[in-house]
Design a protein around this nucleic acid. Sequence first.
DNA 1: CAACTTCAGTTTTTT
DNA 2: ACTGAAGTTG
Length: 736
Amino acid sequence: MSSDINATTAAKNEVVTTLISTLNDAQCQAVTTPAQSVLVLAGAGSGKTRVLVHRIAWQIQVRNVSMHSILAVTFTNKAAKEMRGRIEALLQVSARAMWIGTFHGVAHRLLRSHTKQAKLPDTFQVMDSADQLRLIKRLLVTLNLDEDKWPPRQIQWHINAQKDEGIRAKDCIAGYDLYQQNLLKIYQAYEALCERSGLVDFGELLLRAHELLRDNPDVLRFYQQRFNQVHVDEFQDTNAIQYAWLRLLTQGQDNIFVVGDDDQSIYGWRGAKIENIYSFQKHYPDHQVVKLEQNYRSTGMILKAANAVVANNEGRMGKALWTASADGDPIALYAAFNEQDEAYFVVERIRSWFNDGGKYSDVAILYRSNAQSRQFEERLMTAAIPYRVYGGLRFFERAEIKNALAYLRLIANRHDDASFERVINTPTRGIGAKSLEDMRTIARELAISMWSAMMVLLDQGHLSGRANNALLAFAQLIKNLDQLVEGSELYEKVQLVIEKSGLLEFHEKEKADKGDEKVENLKELVNAARLFDFDSNLEGMENLSELDMFLAYATLESGDMQADDFDECVQLMTLHSAKGLEFKLVFLVGLEEGLFPSQQSLDDVGRLQEERRLCYVGITRAMQYLYLSYAESRRLYGRESYPRPSRFLREIPAECIQEVRLRAEVSRPVTAIKPKSASLQTAGQYRLGQRVSHVKFGEGVILQTEGAGDQERVQINFRQVGIKWLMLAYAKLDVL
DNA sequence: CAACTTCAGTTTTTT
DNA sequence: ACTGAAGTTG
């Protein structure tokens, strides 16, 4: 008997050892602490996911917590997937029973499990932001509001912002401000429309999930007791409603384990509240703070630069990354003549990296705004270097896919107005603006769905023969599809719908190139349906049909399909989408005032600090080599600008930076610039892009030259005083 | 209904 | 400067 106990103790000790043997002290502390509420401040590259994964494993293996009692929330499906995968790899078991998902995914699951208490119809569907925008546009028409005075995108932004703050239309106080009153009216009408269409937008998922717990004590108690500890990834990105939801769930027990980094908070503009980290310490008084500061990713030089930049921010929790590895190469800084030269330089370096045996997939070009990608794409293209740009249209967001899904949604829920409007005349079947307008009026007046309105219209029989037939045919089509599809496999349903709806034919007839791709995508959709892993036993989702599950999946996990092909390509992406990734060789480009930091953030301290954190994120993506660059002259929005180098460059210690220059002839081939005349190419010894020094104005770069002989003038961008025209005959310039 | 023209907007993005 | 979307015509 006692030997049995000894044996299990020994076994347990071994488990403990394997779990923590690979962790450093701080990580180990975070994983093993008995504290109920824990705040892990995890610097970039400090093993944040590792801690989260090991903590969960620790609960299960050492504290004998049931997998059923594990909840972990992330922001992206990618992160959730990775976490699940790593836990499974570590524990060598299926992590199916654990609730690991995005905030939206978990909220969705809760709502499906408790549709009654959440006051939702069983058939409710999730709509994405494109659907939402469509719905809003339509709403504006019915409310007789001019789209120019009420820009749909701003309305959408406003509604989402309210929801992110947990504010319903009934909680709004508009006062006497006419504008506010109208906004409120729109918000109210939008809520009503969603209600009768059975549609739930992304913000609504979170808001409803919060209200579900808040207003149903028994439901709340059930989940409070069920989850042993609530784990949260990227805590600095939580918004007000997400945090409120977490607080409800952990109320009384304070069983919450959050991991975050205040220095990497870059989503303030979409409602993330960095303050939640500070509030956490107030709301959970017995919490323990663990700082992870050892970095396993970058060289000493890169970390030094990153630390120095972010040190310029106020009100930080305070953290300094360090590494046990070497200083590495200094950070290279390239002052490009213009944006084309910048791209040329970067691509040249990538080429030599590859020639020296480096892999393309280890290289990333990071920029502040998407518009910057073009120059690099063009250069990479001519250099025949494979590349991939992040952030394009995702699979489930493509028009043809959304069309197909809209038919499926209409089959699942006839009152889904967003889907109805999308497919009523796609492919074209002779239902014009007039008939639509009539339906909208009826729908509004009777407060019914468009589908019901169509039925009313058909019953009335006031329509012209042609319109009547067209509508009748459409109604019949949907009903037929519904019957036809009954009882068949999911992929067969998809297949049948794209064929019988005429969508396939519609896209086949389209202009050669484009249509082909769309047809391919539609086939891919059938394939996705075939591969769809429908887990009918998934707790809480028992009542959901496979089709409903697939539709929810398409909306909530639309990014899933493009994530995998990382292979052998140079990666181009914005700084925002680079968060969480790492690359051996990183180019951080466009470091110019007005571009990065962006123009819009220059006059606001808070936003500027967020830009700085973005810079910190960018720098810390690099493992071995980091190149920074800026252009002396940049063509942006059709206008030539001469930006000053970014302030962030000055915040990096000089000893970390080494200026680099390609040989002049190589860096500016004649084709790279568009001279206005041949004589502009050179001005004696003064070439375009030549660095010069002036007695009074200091250092600068030659941008343009004009005239000849005594009349020759040069335009110079001085670092200190900006752009100046100087007469060559008088200016005393030294070539640098 | 498709081809053409004009016109505003133009940081960052997930769910 | 460029793009995507809305409006206008044949």
